[in-house]
């Protein structure tokens, strides 16, 4: 981690040793640019970079790279998410070049939710390569200035490479090894699945630190504030690989009518404060799903403001 790999704001913030804070925004289900700009306006100046999701949960939305370009126009820094579900290696590489040409400097490499989850379950899936191979590909394009087939790239994309890790999916014992493989493949930073079981996450981080992974990669812990008891129950039951302890559901329920959202935010703020002190955690990735307007408040209360200028 000596010279800058991409020169992105996120990279500079992390390299300077600041506790990073990234946000997230789902592109519109249509070409409603105004709605997108409105959502983004809440995040400006409150986070170091904004993840732009790529047809998340396999539901068709405005393309991630296009939403990234709009975000850049708005003066924010995108973290371009790309899934392997919808593109073969030709489309992957051309979209990487296109996104870079439009000013994208961070990219998160994902396998993607299977299309059976989404609104086009009849679709043919691609999965030409997987997320591990996508990480290696972006690194090769950046560091060797070569395409996957070894042909030279005329102006290579210099991207800060991100990957995901789910400490709560099974088999648990293997998760830290899979994280290590992603780092070996070239991940510069990691954003984890939403954390609700802090005890389990602490155990995961301890193993990562014991293996020295935090020194080879920046690990950002994922936080999603709960908006309602229903949301917590849905995540607990219906979202694979999500660990929502019963105690949290009980706490939210105990908040009483009209106060659950506030309790959800309070919990998220407590989590962020705890994560700031946790060894090996380099920042927080806040996924406030369709709750962008609450991000400034969460950032303020968690002591994440002002964001560093680097």
């Amino acid at each position: 981690m000596s010279e800058l790999k991409s020169g992105s704001n996120l990279e500079k913030v992390l390299k300077a040793g600041h506790f990073a804070f990234t946000g997230e925004c789902g592109p519109p289900k249509g070409a409603n640019v105004e709605h997108l700009r409105e959502k983004l306006s809440h995040l400006k100046g409150k986070v170091d970079a904004v993840n732009i999701t790529d047809n998340q949960t396999a539901v068709v939305r405005m393309s991630s790279w296009a939403a990234c370009a709009i975000l850049i126009q708005e003066g924010l820094e995108p973290n371009f998410q790309m899934v392997c579900r919808d593109r073969n290696r030709l489309a992957i590489q051309s979209d990487i070049l296109g996104a870079y040409a439009l000013g994208v400097r961070n990219m998160l490499c994902l396998s993607g939710d299977h299309q059976t989850f989404g609104n086009h379950p009849q679709a043919k899936n691609v999965y030409d390569i997987d997320s591990m191979q996508l990480i290696s590909l972006v690194k090769k394009m950046r560091d060797e200035q070569k395409f996957m087939n070894d042909e030279e790239i005329d102006v290579a994309p210099k991207l800060f490479i991100g990957a995901a890790s789910n400490p709560f999916a099974e088999p648990f014992e293997f998760r830290v090894y899979r994280l290590a493989m992603k780092i070996d493949s070239g991940a510069d930073f990691i954003q984890t699945q939403c954390i609700y079981n802090m005890q389990r996450f602490r155990g995961f981080m301890k193993r990562a630190v014991d293996m020295g992974l935090h020194e080879r990669c920046y690990i950002l812990a994922g936080i999603t504030p709960m908006k309602s008891v229903g949301m917590a129950q849905y995540m607990a039951k219906a979202v694979p690989g999500m660990d929502v302890p019963e105690s949290l559901i009980k706490r939210l329920r105990g908040a009483g009518k009209g106060k659950v959202a506030e309790e959800g935010i309070k919990f998220a703020v407590e989590q962020i404060q705890e994560l700031k002190e946790m060894e090996g955690v380099a920042g927080v990735h806040l996924m406030a799903i369709e709750w962008e307007h609450r991000v400034p408040e969460i950032a303020e209360r968690a002591g994440m403001l002002p964001r560093p200028k680097v």
Binding site: C84, R85, S111, G112, D113, H114, T116, N125, Y127, D130, S131, M132, Q133, A164, S165, N166, A169, E170, P171, F174, R178, M181, Q193, P240, G241
Partner: peptide, 14 residues
Amino acid sequence: SKSLLHGPCGGSAN
């Protein structure tokens, strides 16, 4: 389901 060569993905449960 995703023909991954480096699994399991984050959706593996039980």
